[in-house]
Design a protein around this nucleic acid. Sequence first.
DNA 1: AATTTGAGTTTGAACGATCAACTCGTCGGG
DNA 2: CCCGACGAGTTGATCGTTCAAACTCAAATT
Lengths: 350, 350
Amino acid sequence: MVKISTTSDVPDSSTVSIGPATIESVAALAGVSRQTVSNALNAPQRVRPDTLAKVLRVIDEVGYRPNRSARSLRTQASRLIGLQTEAPTGRGSSVLDRFLHALSDAARERDHHVLLFTNAAPDDPALGYETLHRSAAVDGFVLTGTHVHDSRVEFLATHALPFVTFGRSWGDAGSPRWVDVDGAAGTALAVEHLAARGHRRIAFLGWPETSEVGEDRMLGWRRQIAHHQLVEGGLERSSEDPLDAASAMARLLDQDEPPTAVVCASDSVAAGVYRALSERGLRVGDIGVVGFDDSPAASLLTPALTSVSQPIEAVARAVFDILIRAIDGDPISEQDRVLLQPTLTIRDST
Amino acid sequence: MVKISTTSDVPDSSTVSIGPATIESVAALAGVSRQTVSNALNAPQRVRPDTLAKVLRVIDEVGYRPNRSARSLRTQASRLIGLQTEAPTGRGSSVLDRFLHALSDAARERDHHVLLFTNAAPDDPALGYETLHRSAAVDGFVLTGTHVHDSRVEFLATHALPFVTFGRSWGDAGSPRWVDVDGAAGTALAVEHLAARGHRRIAFLGWPETSEVGEDRMLGWRRQIAHHQLVEGGLERSSEDPLDAASAMARLLDQDEPPTAVVCASDSVAAGVYRALSERGLRVGDIGVVGFDDSPAASLLTPALTSVSQPIEAVARAVFDILIRAIDGDPISEQDRVLLQPTLTIRDST
DNA sequence: AATTTGAGTTTGAACGATCAACTCGTCGGG
DNA sequence: CCCGACGAGTTGATCGTTCAAACTCAAATT
């Protein structure tokens, strides 16, 4: 074995780099100090333009990315936001994956990421949140599907942790920061559309009274009926199970004067309406049907279902922006409560 | 201002703890050193039982959780696995949220988490993977919906990064570790079921030939037809668009001898079949229809759709287990390629 | 001419954990 | 009786980054 020595007696560590580049290796290559590399990325205005260019060129050449763990440890911020996934049930799951993608995308633009977690202890829904907070794994939380006296909300509020809910706070001591879609406006749109199609007797097929979201949607229908001096064609309630919804629809049809159209609290409920009509040999379209959520199923049904579309991407963006402000310690303001307007996607069922 | 001194000259830092507990504060409270606390959690057998009990009691009292960033920095392992979310399209999105939840749940049991990210540069699909790797943000990746010559797979394989794909590698140089569902077995089950219901002329409505997944499902149908000496009732291909699928089904019905049942490559395609039958006044059920994926839409359709169910939870668990082994540096083995069997969920469409 | 100012850069310390090496007794074997 | 092995616990070093303070040098001020 022959040892070949180079003209330089300084070991050329740059060419024998093992593992990913670090701030130290970049600094050595650029002939500056650690901190100047750090400044080049985090506070470029502090660095002289020519030095900046030199450093950035090296960063680009070696493909350096700051180690997230090291940065998080020093800055006490993980740049991660936590979101608990629920076991997929009928309701809302179609909306959730769109939301998840949109939230990740919004986070990406600010060099943040979404961390998923699941509920380990059914008897203590707040446990997962507490653990992630204690281990400094996330900077804040996004919650979906909250309800009154939600123990997770109570926990987060008590400990003054940054969080934003998708879904407004209905109770008195709910979430101080939220983004929601105006469900009442959505069902009002549906009534408006059906009225324009000549319907005067319009029913509503909703969820149990215990659902605040369901009651909101119901009230939008009721108000718009009154506003246009139309006729309430009946009000029934059911679960998300299409079979349950079908029998609720059957009750509506059994009235002395059955409705000519029905607005539904969700697409699943609308699917139940399709079934009820089919069983009686009635045709969807003759009886107008409007769903809610514009889930993938809406365009799969025959005829394709007219449905209220939630602006999920806008919701996700607003949720993220608000959460960032909360993490930054900004006091709660008007801007931290956002109500967005839905639109109506018209298909063949009306 | 009067300074009140206590009998102890050692500042009682334990009672004035600011912020979450650290390993140092726990050690002080338990009267042991840092490392003993660390051992109590990571290598309890190294600690004497009575010491262990004492330390664990303090940990429990103050609710100590190791800081993840600090741990990750030292151990060079983030305990995070990366998964890229795609913009929701019809195909597969229904499966994806179940998978996501199941994967998070499998990860939780081993103190890992799922980190979501999105594609920032459409022209360079591997960029997001490279960035996360360079910044040591994740220990490995899970991929879904890969295809032949997938640049992400090529990148990960070239750099020897740990990753597992949901979906086997069809090309020659694909993913070395994967979990998949036996699509051919699924369509074979469908044919089996239809044959038992008395159908002899069974068609297949699939995806374009370019889809390996689609061809696999098609072949299962073809083989089972041959095996039972039934008749191929036609083969058509369409996209996931129900309209497209409906016209493909129309072509099948226009044959001299139309099929009495049809097996579909997906539930969306099956929804198109429903539409085609409805347009001709035919009844689903008289013509048997079987879908694939058992998406939420399957039970929403009228009549409810018989569909091949993928064991998503088992897939997620297998994916995670394999990924952990890959991260641990285990060599590729037989156990790193897993093919799971689907089941048939029988509803009213057959 | 001495002092202040400030931009640009460097150095030491710290974030909170784990690894590696070390200390201190105790016990058993030659 | 000595020595090595072993169990239980401690201390110093380290992971890669950013913060805070210090330094340098030239230009501006007194």
